[in-house]
Design a binder for these strands. Structure first.
Length: 515
RNA sequence: GGGCCCGUAGUUCAGUUGGUUAGAACGCGCCGCUCAUAACGGUGUUGUCGUCGGUUCGAGUCCGGCCGGGCCUACCA
């Protein structure tokens, strides 16, 4: 069980030039759900998140804040750690690109690429705008000026290049052989057409600033931030020690979850870098979408960012986790609204699952002497409901495999629906007057279904899942997926008095939009 | 400009390789139940499946035009 098949999943490392917001929370949450699922399913999981700390922007931001770059990074990186704590994220490691282990990994990878002739020294030339601190291509220019209107000058500077142009065909072949490498399909199409349109060599060093990983044997250059950043995924499992236990176990990663804005870096550059270094590319890259807030695009100018801390405070942690993953098909854009949030919480959590538990357990409490009911002869209806609940695990595995987190939740709730229907049809409150043995069987079947739901809901709602299982007096070592098969709680096991797990929201939605 | 995707009930969306009366959830109306967090169950409700035309015995499901919307089109990350 603990030494099951490895599963290595990563969030992107978050750029410290930005404060944590809903987008970061969402990505990390999705990874956490998959990581927890796999762990409960007996897989050996390595779940990585962290911060990306180099680059010109960070150097500038630090200067603006009047602190040294590393000190600046320390502060912001800590905010991301804090977010992970508050979200109850189960990451196994938190990497920072300023760590020594990472710098060593980057330099080792670089050297390997140099040795193979995949990186060469050339010069980067283009129209540079001092005001924008950016290069523009000929096509970008408008009337000889930058698109921003700033004046530009022709600049050439020495730069190392990665021979990306040589990898187009091999990338296409790789995508072809691994149809599941990029998800969802729409992103895959984009990436394929991007690669088909032809790749140019990639400038992978900079001389215009110093806050980065020094290029080996050429201290005037620091590495291009994406080469640096992407390498974190192998740093964290021990690279360059490819003989290490962790590297051998976890590389290649099973899944890099990313926002849709950084698909190209993960699905094109990263596998190219790795293949060029003769290292195996990751097995999957999945891009999720963006949130809008009450129908509006989130932007700094509108000041309508969604603060994850506000959501948690207003609605509860597990409620927030549930909403973000249930409301929108994973991979698509979605809209956050107070109304939708309250609706999900009340309809799915309070009315459906929460109330199911409450009505079952309160009857058990009153009519079964507060002990687990004795299950007698099963009818076809009993068998059908139990079979439906027991078929969840394989169905959820399939959904997880495809990153269909919303589908997994929909399936869970379909069983909760079925249980609500079953209890109405069986009417144990009527059986109480006519057939106590049958009543116990009905309640016993329901308790078993709730047990299974409680176990399976843990990846998304760890606390709520624990509360559900606490109320069924399930010991902590009987809460993984393997325990599903071990069957109902022994009849006669004392059960505590039921307590509501998911309260309804009766009041008006609370204001969470941050100005 | 080139490429990809989408437009289905009030809302959010499902709709395998074209095939009987187009589905789900939420919302809403009515009925039932009373164990339960005024929750649950039953039942009903509305759709020219964006639009025009084509292929076909038959198209939401394939082809083309048009309208509307979104995304990608590399070196800030």
């Amino acid at each position: 069980m603990p030494d099951g098949r490895p599963f290595y999943i990563t969030t992107p490392i978050y750029y410290v030039n930005d404060k944590p917001h809903i987008g970061h929370a969402y990505t990390t949450l999705a990874c956490d759900v998959m990581a927890r699922f796999m762990r409960l399913d007996g897989r050996r999981v390595h779940f990585l998140t962290g911060t990306d700390e180099h680059g010109q922007k960070v150097e500038k931001s630090a200067a603006a804040a009047g602190v040294a770059p590393l000190e600046f990074c320390d502060r912001v990186s800590e905010q991301f750690r804090e977010l992970a704590r508050v979200l109850n994220i189960s990451n196994d490691d938190f990497i920072r690109t300023t760590e020594q282990r990472h710098i060593a990994a980057c330099q080792a990878l670089w050297q390997r690429l140099i040795d193979r002739g995949e990186i060469y020294l050339g010069s980067y030339a283009g129209w540079y705008s001092v005001r924008d601190e950016a290069f523009y291509t000929e096509a970008d220019l408008i009337d000889g000026n930058a698109p921003t209107g700033a004046p530009v000058e022709w600049v050439e500077e020495p730069s190392y290049f990665f021979r990306l142009s040589a990898w187009g065909d091999r990338l296409l072949e790789f995508y072809d052989r691994n149809p599941g490498f990029i998800g969802p399909d729409s992103r895959r199409n984009e990436v394929v057409s991007f690669v088909k349109s032809g790749l140019r060599d990639l400038s992978v060093s900079r001389t215009s600033f110093t806050w980065g990983v020094p290029v080996p044997n050429d201290p005037a250059h620091v590495m291009y931030v994406w080469l640096d950043a992407l390498t974190n995924y192998i740093t964290a499992v021990g690279y360059p020690d490819v003989d290490s236990e962790s590297y051998k176990t976890f590389w290649p990663a099973n899944l890099h979850v990313v926002g849709k804005d950084i698909v190209r870096f993960h699905a094109v550059y990263w596998p190219a870098f790795l293949m060029a270094a003769e290292l195996p590319p990751p097995q999957g890259v999945f891009a999720h979408g963006w949130w809008t807030n009450e129908g509006q695009k989130i932007s700094k100018s509108l000041g309508n960012a969604i603060d994850p801390y506000d959501l948690i405070e207003s609605y509860g942690l597990d409620q927030t986790r549930y909403f973000l993953l249930r409301e929108v098909p994973f991979g698509q854009d979605g809209d956050f609204s107070q109304k939708a949030m309250v609706n999900r919480i009340n309809a799915d959590l309070a009315n459906n699952l929460g109330n199911l538990m409450q009505r079952v357990l309160s009857q058990v409490q009153k009519n079964c002497a507060a002990t687990a009911p004795t299950i007698g002869v099963l009818t076809a209806e009993d068998e059908a409901l139990l079979a439906q609940a027991r078929s969840l695990l394989p169905a959820l595995r399939a959904a997880m495999e495809k990153c269909e987190l919303h589908q997994a939740l929909a399936q869970l709730w379909a069983v909760s629906d079925a249980a609500n229907l079953y209890i109405d049809q069986q009417a144990p409150w009527t059986l109480k007057k006519t057939d106590l043995v049958r009543m116990a069987t009905v309640l016993g079947v329901l308790v078993e279904v709730i047990r299974i739901l409680g176990i399976l809901v843990q990846p998304v709602m760890p606390d709520a899942g624990a509360k559900i299982l606490d109320q069924l007096a399930i010991s902590v070592d009987a809460r993984d997926f393997a325990a599903i098969a071990s069957g109902p709680i022994a009849a006669g096991t004392p059960l505590p008095a039921p307590q509501g797990v998911f309260p309804r929201i009766e009041t008006k939605p609370i204001e969470t939009a941050k100005a």
